[in-house]
């Protein structure tokens, strides 16, 4: 039976993401929240969520000895990062005056410029609400999800991967940014699938059913 671990490192609410995973898994997978390295690594699928600020995120991961766990999981199992979890996978973030992150995917996390504008209209930061996700690759995690479907975002920083080939989707807010990235057994989204109603649940279902190949 598949076992899905949601990594708990004290950054934000894990209840919604675990409830969403339970909803899409039914009887076919066991979902659990854990901060124990062995328990996390015993799972077949690993989900790395996160909300808040990057410094606290990296500090807490290190304090709990979970930075190595994330690295190991991202090498060998179907692994998915969400929002701050995605940003933590890059090399470095501009947030909190510059923080070195986990470096799983080479690249930078950058701030939206303030004030951001488009066609003369002021754009608000954080980028908050439902925006379109334009798929730029075929990937099993996009199964049964329409091109340009809307997902829920809430963030003030975005990822800029060094290699454009890892971009799985783009979203437009002032400019295009990478709203999903992938490589081998790793997938990550800037948006919150657990808060994106039907399309979000479909993405999580695709993740639970994913064999880590793309």
């Amino acid at each position: 039976m598949r076992r899905v671990a949601v990594i708990d490192y004290g950054m934000g609410n894990l209840r919604s993401v675990s409830k969403a995973l339970e909803t899409v898994s039914g009887q076919s997978a066991q979902v659990f929240i854990s901060s124990k390295p062995e328990e996390i690594l015993s799972a077949s699928h690993i989900l790395f969520p996160g909300v808040g600020a990057i410094r606290d995120c990296i500090d807490e991961l290190k304090r709990l000895g979970l930075d190595e766990v994330v690295q190991e999981a991202a090498r060998e199992k179907p692994f998915m990062g969400i929002c701050l979890g995605m940003q933590a996978m890059l090399t470095h973030s501009e947030e909190n005056n510059g923080i070195d992150a986990l470096g799983i995917i080479p690249g930078e996390v950058k701030a939206f410029d303030k004030p951001l504008s488009a066609a003369g209209d002021k754009l608000k930061v954080p980028h908050m609400g439902w925006n379109q996700v334009h798929q730029t690759c075929d990937h099993p995690l996009w199964n049964n999800i329409e091109q340009d479907e809307r997902f829920y975002f809430v963030h003030g920083y975005f990822v800029s991967p060094a290699d454009p080939a890892v971009v799985a989707a783009t979203t437009h807010y002032g400019a295009d940014f990478a709203s999903a990235i992938y490589r081998d057994n790793v997938f990550a989204t800037q948006f919150h699938p657990e808060k994106s109603q039907r399309a979000g649940l479909q993405l999580l279902e695709n993740f639970v059913n994913w064999d880590g190949q793309c």
Partner: peptide, 8 residues
């Protein structure tokens, strides 16, 4: 097309 206005 871009960010949608929200109804809450």
């Amino acid at each position: 097309m871009g960010l949608a206005k929200r109804i809450i």
